[in-house]
């Protein structure tokens, strides 16, 4: 039971964030996480057959979240990209980083505006520290999709950062050291 509690505590925050992205309610997300662990308890004797527990947990959480959405929406979305996903991404305090509060706001804005699937992928890789392959398994997309989507998310974030010349002048036009692709 100790280990069960450890397992629960270890994954609660991550699974809760993940479920919350779908259901957008703290209470529902908590119930979904609880259901995930009831499921785990029920199959505890067969858990050795599970290849990657982390992926397994997130996959169940994803299924339960989608089940919930199917139940409450009249016209449930058919693909991940049609879902309205709420980002739960921590960007920290500007003081701790090298950026201004204003930049931080625009970073949040960028995340907000990412396509839903891209946002989810970004969240899973950054916040939950999942590998591309794991994210691909959970969201049932190809690892290449994860790789491309994350590059898009990072590019948009990066472009929201001000260009700072070594002299200290902030300018966005002097990005000339790179060829535009």
């Amino acid at each position: 039971m100790r280990a069960y509690e450890e397992l629960y505590n270890r994954f609660f925050d991550g699974l809760h964030r993940f479920a919350f992205s779908f259901v957008k309610s703290n209470e529902v997300a908590e119930e979904i996480v609880s259901d995930v662990f009831i499921k785990i308890w029920q199959i505890r004797n067969r858990l050795s057959e599970v290849e990657n527990l982390k992926v397994y947990l997130y996959t169940i959480a994803r299924n339960f979240s989608l089940n919930y959405i199917q139940r409450i929406y009249k016209h449930p979305p058919v693909s991940l990209d049609e879902l309205d996903v709420m980002p739960v991404v921590e960007m920290g305090n500007p003081e701790e980083m090298l950026i201004s509060a204003e930049t931080l706001r625009s970073l949040r804005q960028v995340i907000q505006e990412l396509p839903p699937q891209c946002r989810l992928i970004f969240q899973l890789v950054k916040e939950e520290g999942l590998r591309y392959k794991e994210v691909a398994d959970i969201l049932q997309v190809s690892p290449l999709t994860v790789r491309n989507q994350l590059a898009i998310a990072v590019r948009r974030l990066g472009q929201a950062l001000p260009m700072i010349q070594s002299a200290g002048a902030v300018t966005a036009v002097s990005a000339g050291s790179l060829k535009k692709s």
Partner: peptide, 29 residues
């Protein structure tokens, strides 16, 4: 390209921020 390095560093420090724990886990358990 020092200008791009700075940008890279900013992004990296942003990336390394970890989400705060919810703090209600024992209750929730």
């Amino acid at each position: 390209h020092p200008v791009w390095r700075l940008r890279f560093n900013q992004l990296q420090s942003t990336w390394q921020q970890r989400p705060a724990s919810s703090g209600t886990r024992s209750l929730s358990f």
